[in-house]
Design a protein around this nucleic acid. Structure first.
Length: 876
RNA sequence: GGAGGCGUAGCUCAGCCGGUUAGAGCACUUGCCUUACAAGCAAGGGGUCACUGGUUCGAGUCCAGUCGUCUCCACCA
């Protein structure tokens, strides 16, 4: 048996253990055609291929790894499918930045092909970084199956999906108002726009009526868009405005004559009662424009400057233009007034610049038909959200979803498989690259330059990673997957889209459960972010405290769906827990003379107590894991190990281990080792490294703890009576300790301990450890109190009265006061019990078990009161 | 405008189907280097479970309302 160091050193263990698992191929899951092994599967939310591990990933990984390891140990063929995401915008921006910094070039200088070569090179260089970082967390993914959203298989799945949806009319190209990021130079989906309340102004502008009969005043937050105004709307029911319908007015600064139309979109009583219409730059105006045949004039170019339709303002940046327009309006007398106005401005979720709504020809997925099934499987419980309130978030979104803009004006991504015929303009969408137009046969085809939204490929992830569109064994066996673990922040981006994609392509929901977790915030409750510089690098924590400590930190005190704050101090506490386990194991090993893990023939009371407690714990842990209460499960294990095993059981075995009876010593060793092995298994999903390290160092039957069987509740090892009996002993010991502590008696001062109890059977077998734990030089168990108790310090529980001859410490008055206080307390408690039990309604309506428990409580109090009274009487 | 979360010890949080005297970690007090562990052990102090009302034999837990706080969705110029 090798000697373990006194302090656990995760740094010297973790990488070695991870290599051991990888070499043993323990992470790899195989399809079991016989289905003897049941399938369990999780597909990992693919991190950005060029990204770095942050706390959110660390939490995500930890939760998934716990579930995967748990199921693997339960005998499932547990597949955790890893992979990375090409992350269109994020990656492209990163490479463009590097290009600019290092070579002073833009992507246009290189051209599409050369640029893409650079991105792939970048991916080759940095793509493994995040994977290596995940490994440091101890993740047990099946790396053999690792996928990338732009690998051959995933690309095929994307193309197949696109073509199928196009053929069904569920993908179309059209001119719509989309969200445009003038910085990233691409269209965005609705989900990619973040709204922020920003202070602004409301400018009131006077538009003169053409017939000279006055003017109409409109209000706007974006005066520069007036360059694209093609109408003014008023409500047809509005008495003050409706007479203007049918007239025209002159657009100031531009001089264009535009119609005044009646439309209910304009709300009576709001603002001036008239709204300027800019169909090219506002989704609502666009709709109104359609209804009234308003002209669509786009005035803002892709880069956020005013285009040629902006007349004198051409070339100005949109915000400079705003200033100039306002100044010009004022100068020419068209500006009525300016009010401060705070409003929500859409910003790009990548670069946080203001998004510009503008009309553009883009590709869309028609959502309404897809939403139907996606809603059904959540509403009927086929897919369950944990916690279930997120189902509401989901359905609410899905019920109101707009068509999904999927084209991006980027180069890095899945290029849309559409070719425009140079002759007839027909759009050819095809699984194979076409050589001629399917309509006119002409061979001059131009491929669509746009690529697809990154989330288009992520949406297919649960089945594309398993080989779809091929029919594979993996799909047959593991799809639908068991659980999807992810943060609430990407329910719309990802979860929703996986669901409708799964329903549409596989005709089957992609996962049974969705475990939603919250955000990991800093200690002040702020989001961890690069710009704030408040992020804590999980790898720093791993290096300082070990991956197990970080994992345990992230999983404890964290309940599904709720955000958590991250405290490095808590990592320290968890590191201490690791050390506790380490030293407990050291203790066991130092005392070990056996080579196997069998239990002894004869079990003592304390053995049955710890075995029973372990059994209870194993049960509670599985129950909680099964309902995704990982934090509760972790806490149960923590408490068992620290309180029951370390603080009590190890101490209880010391007399036997150090005694002269070899059989007793072996018995203690066997139970110690048995329970140690048991809790290591129980803990393994949470703290994989330390548990494997210790498992390998102690006598063990399996080859690795990672593939050991997870502890189950074992009726043969349930000892409720002994558990309860031992509680009496614990209670008595605690009472003695408390009495001594109260009087500041150091442990080195021992005394004789006389225990008077009507349950001598519970106490008699344990005098050896009672002596140790209650700092006694000798223990006498008897049924009656000593005849003479003068000069004795006493302690009282419901089942025992303890006496310690320490005459110099006895202060009769203080003793009397203490006992009287305890008695008063107990009397009060008893009165409560009596009141409760004499309440007929309670006795009649409460469940029997509850009533019995209350009766028992009353009996205990009565016993305690009796003991307290006797002790008081003995004082004289 | 709509939806939802949270409010429990000094701090951060658990507390499942309502059922002992409401728990943990950190912090605090006291005493201990008891041959596994001072990253430890023992004993303790500290809570009107935001507030009001209701349901119930019984409410931190369920319901309604109020206050505070955070988030998401929608986006009326």
């Amino acid at each position: 048996m090798k000697e373990l160091p006194k302090v656990y050193e995760p740094q010297s263990v973790e990488q070695k253990i991870y290599a051991f698992w990888e070499n043993g191929n323990y992470f790899h899951a195989e399809v079991d055609r016989t289905k003897k092994k049941k399938p369990f599967s999780i597909v990992m939310p693919p991190p950005n291929v060029t990204g770095q591990l942050h706390m959110g990933h660390a939490l995500d990984c930890t939760l998934q790894d716990i579930l995967t390891r748990y199921k693997r140990m339960q005998g499932y063929s547990a597949l955790w499918m890893p992979g990375t995401d090409h992350a269109g915008i994020a990656t492209q921006i990163k490479v463009e930045e590097a290009l600019r910094k290092e070579e002073g070039l833009t992507r246009y200088d290189l051209g599409r092909d050369k640029f893409l070569e650079r991105v792939w090179a970048w991916k080759e260089k940095y793509g493994s970084r995040i994977v290596e970082q995940q490994k440091r967390m101890g993740v047990s993914c099946d790396w053999e199956r690792a996928r990338f959203t732009m690998d051959e298989g995933c690309s095929k799945a994307v193309r197949e999906t696109f073509c199928k949806l196009y053929e069904k009319g569920l993908i179309y190209k059209g001119s719509r108002i989309i969200n445009w990021c003038p910085h990233c130079l691409t269209a965005l989906s609705d989900a990619e726009v973040e709204y922020a309340d920003k202070p602004g102004h409301l400018w009131y502008i006077r538009y003169p009526l053409t017939d000279g009969s006055g003017d109409i005043v409109v209000a706007t937050t974006r005066p520069e868009t007036m360059l694209g105004d093609t109408g003014v709307a008023v409500n047809p029911e509005d008495e003050t405005q409706k007479d203007k319908i049918g007239k025209t007015c002159i657009l100031p600064l531009v001089g264009r004559e535009i119609p005044i139309v009646g439309d209910e979109y304009c709300e009576i009583g709001f603002g001036t009662g008239a709204v300027k219409m800019t169909p090219a730059h506002d989704p609502n105006d666009f709709e109104v424009g359609l209804r009234h045949n308003l002209e669509v004039i786009r005035v803002i170019a892709d880069d956020g400057t005013i285009n040629e339709f902006g007349g004198a303002y051409e070339g100005l940046d949109r915000y400079e233009c705003r200033k100039k327009i306002v100044a010009d309006l004022e100068e020419q007398g068209y500006l009525v007034k300016i009010e401060d106005y705070s409003h929500n401005v859409g910003t790009c979720y990548r670069c946080h610049n203001d998004v510009e709504p503008l009309i553009s020809a883009q590709w869309f997925v028609k959502m309404e038909p897809l939403a139907k099934d996606a809603l059904r499987v959540v509403n009927d419980g086929t897919i369950q959200f944990v916690p279930d309130r997120f189902a509401k978030t989901y359905t609410n979104w899905m019920e109101n979803v707009h068509d999904w803009c999927i084209s991006r004006q980027l180069w890095w991504g899945h290029q849309i498989p559409a070719w425009y015929c140079d002759d007839c303009g027909h759009i050819n969408v095809s699984r194979e690259d076409p050589t001629k137009c399917e309509k006119c046969g002409c061979e001059r085809l131009t491929r669509e330059e746009d690529v697809l939204d990154t989330w288009f490929s992520s949406a297919l992830w649960p089945f594309s990673t398993m080989g779809w569109p091929e029919k594979t064994e993996a799909l047959d066996y593991w799809y639908p997957t068991s659980v999807m673990v992810t943060g609430y922040d990407i329910i719309f981006f990802w979860v929703a889209r996986m669901i409708f994609s799964g329903m549409e392509q596989m005709k089957e929901h992609p996962f049974d459960k969705v475990l939603i977790h919250g955000l990991v915030r800093d200690s002040l409750g702020r989001k961890m972010s690069k710009s704030l510089g408040n992020g804590i690098d999980p790898l720093d924590m791993v290096e300082q405290y070990g991956a197990d400590a970080l994992r345990f930190n992230l999983v404890t005190g964290n309940s599904p769906g709720n955000d958590m704050r991250f405290y490095p101090e808590k990592c320290e506490a968890m590191r201490n827990f690791c050390n506790k386990i380490w030293n407990a194991s050291r203790f066991v090993m130092m005392n070990l003379s056996i080579g196997d893990t069998a239990l002894p023939e004869k079990l003592e009371l304390e053995d049955k107590w710890i075995l029973s407690r372990f059994n209870d714990t194993a049960k509670a842990v599985s129950e909680n894991l099964d309902k995704f209460e990982l934090g509760v499960a972790a806490a149960k294990i923590y408490d068992f190990i620290w309180d029951d095993y370390c603080d009590w059981y190890i101490e209880l075995t010391k007399p036997r281990l150090n005694g002269d009876d070899p059989a007793a010593k072996e018995g203690a060793e066997r139970v110690l080792l048995h329970v140690l092995t048991g809790f290591l298994k129980l803990l393994h999903p949470f703290m994989p490294f330390i548990t494997e390290e210790i498992y390998q160092a102690i006598p063990h039957s399996g080859e690795a703890i990672i593939v050991e069987e997870y502890p189950k509740y074992d009726p043969a090892l349930a000892f409720p009576k002994e558990e309860a009996d031992f509680q009496l002993v614990m209670e008595a010991i605690r009472a003695v300790r408390a009495r001594r502590a109260e009087m500041n008696v150091p442990p080195s001062r021992k005394s004789h301990l006389i225990i008077a109890t009507d349950r001598p059977d519970a106490f008699e077998q344990g005098t050896a450890y009672i002596r140790k734990l209650a700092y006694a030089e000798a223990v006498t168990v008897q049924t009656e109190a000593p005849a003479e108790t003068k000069g004795m310090v006493s302690a009282v529980t419901g089942n025992a009265r303890m006496f310690m001859p320490m005459a110099d410490l006895v202060d009769l008055d203080a003793e009397r006061a203490r006992l009287s206080k305890a008695l008063a307390n107990a009397d009060k408690g008893l009165a409560g019990q009596i009141a409760k039990l004499s309440n007929e309604k309670f006795v009649a309506r409460a469940p029997e078990a509850i009533v019995n428990a209350e009766r028992e409580k009353k009996a205990n109090l009565e016993a305690l009161i009796e003991n307290l009274k006797q002790s008081l009487a003995n004082l004289g």
